[in-house]
Computed example of a mutant assay.
Amino acid sequence: MTVADLLDRPLGVLRLSLTARCNLACPYCLPDGQEPSGLLSMEQRLQVAKAAVALGAKSLRLTGGEPLLYKELDELIGALQPLRREGLQEIALTSNGMLLSAERAQQLREAGLDRLTLSLDGTTGTSVAAMAGLADPAAGERALKQVLRAIEHARQAGFDPAQGALKLNAVIQRNRNAEQVLPLAQLCRQQGLELRLIEYMDVGNRNGWRRAEVVPAAEMVRTIGEQWPLEPLGRAGSSTANRWRYRDGRGCVAMVASVSEPFCGDCNRLRVTADGIAYTCLFAAPGSGVDLKPSLAAGRDQGDLEAALDQLWRQRADRYSEDRSRSATPPGAHAEMAYLGG
Rank of each mutant, 00 (worst) to 15 (best):
M1G: 06
T2D: 05
D5P: 00
P10W: 14
V13Y: 00
L16K: 02
L16T: 11
S17W: 05
L18N: 04
A25Y: 09
P27L: 03
Y28P: 05
D32C: 04
G33K: 10
L40Y: 10
R45L: 02
R45W: 02
R45E: 04
V48P: 03
A54C: 01
S59P: 00
L62G: 01
G64F: 06
G65L: 05
E75A: 15
I77P: 00
L80N: 02
P82S: 13
L83C: 12
G87T: 06
Q89A: 10
I91Q: 06
L93I: 12
T94S: 11
T94K: 02
N96C: 11
G97A: 10
L100D: 06
S101F: 01
A102N: 07
A102P: 00
E110F: 08
L120C: 08
T124E: 07
T124V: 12
G125S: 05
G125R: 15
T126Q: 14
A129S: 13
A132H: 15
D136M: 03
D136Q: 06
A138D: 15
G140F: 13
R142T: 11
K145M: 11
K145H: 14
Q146Y: 02
L148N: 06
H153S: 15
A154Q: 08
G158D: 13
P161A: 11
N169H: 08
A170P: 09
V171N: 02
I172Q: 07
N177Q: 07
V181E: 00
P183W: 10
E194H: 08
L195W: 05
R196G: 01
I198G: 05
I198W: 10
I198F: 06
G208K: 08
A212L: 10
A212Y: 05
V215R: 04
A218G: 00
V221G: 02
R222E: 15
R222I: 00
E226T: 09
W228H: 04
A241F: 13
A241V: 11
Y246M: 12
A254K: 10
M255I: 09
S260R: 05
E261G: 05
C264G: 06
D266I: 10
D266V: 12
R271G: 03
V272K: 06
I277N: 04
A278V: 05
L282V: 11
P286F: 09
S288M: 14
S288W: 15
L292N: 01
Q302S: 14
L305W: 05
L305S: 03
A308T: 07
L312F: 00
E322V: 14
R326V: 03
A328F: 12
A333L: 15
E336Y: 03
G341T: 09
